[in-house]
């Protein structure tokens, strides 16, 4: 097998998929709760706050995992612009998954609200009470949420592009080890075609 890692570590993969579900759910919860006057407003908000703090904690752990275990290199033949886009969007995602919960927390603090994660669990304020800061942070929270959603869409589209069009192993690097043939490494598939003729057709 390869000397360089062709796959994210188990911790990185587990965190990726867990947080993917949490963050996408969070985006839908957030955008849904501010667009209704029904009881959904109340219970979505009750999920939104503890889920946001959970994402913040996991994002810190994930950043540590990322620094400790660098991801597998992108394919050597990937155009420079796509490499740049991959790098920039990944760091944008890291920035947003850390910034969004912090902005939300600071925004509630600035608005003078108690930051309640449940019936009785309260976080301390992390920003002085200020209506001006509240307004700025609240708008920032909404704008960054849109940016995060668009970045997620691009990330999902790019992952599928790697998995279905380029089939260069980038998508498989985030999958469980047993499923490597879903997005077979292109060079490897070409080289091994005679031995594993069905590998290239797994996606059809």
């Amino acid at each position: 097998m390869n000397a360089a890692p062709d796959r994210f570590t188990l911790a990185a993969r587990a965190l990726h998929w867990l947080m993917a579900v949490m963050i996408v759910a969070m985006l839908f919860i957030g955008v849904g709760m501010v667009a209704t006057v029904s009881a959904r407003h109340e219970w979505l908000l009750a999920i939104h706050k503890p889920l946001g703090i959970a994402i913040l904690l996991l994002a810190v752990i994930r950043l540590a995992v990322r620094v400790r275990h660098p991801p597998p290199p992108l394919p050597a033949d990937l155009p420079a612009l796509q490499k740049l886009a991959a790098l920039a969007s990944h760091w944008l995602l890291y920035f947003l998954m850390l910034a969004m919960p912090l902005i939300g927390w600071a925004m509630l603090s600035a608005g003078g609200y108690p930051v309640m994660l449940g019936d009785a669990l309260r976080l301390p304020p992390i920003f002085p009470t200020s209506p001006v800061a509240f307004a700025v942070l609240r708008h920032l929270h909404g704008a960054f949420a849109m940016l995060l959603f668009l970045t997620f869409l691009a990330h999902m589209g790019a992952a599928l592009y790697h998995g279905l069009i380029r089939r260069d192993g980038v998508f498989a690097s985030m999958l469980p080890a047993a499923s490597r043939s879903i997005d077979g490494d292109r060079e490897e598939v070409d080289a091994d075609k005679a031995d594993r003729p069905s590998a290239a057709r797994q996606n059809d």
């Binding site: 501010v34 006057v37 407003h41 109340e42 608005g111 209506p131 609240r138």
Partner: peptide
């Protein structure tokens, strides 16, 4: 929940104006 949601919107409008 409607009061809560509408008050939040009103609060954002007036703090944004401030």
């Amino acid at each position: 929940p409607a009061r809560s949601a509408a008050y939040a919107d009103s609060y954002l409008r007036r703090t944004s104006e401030e």
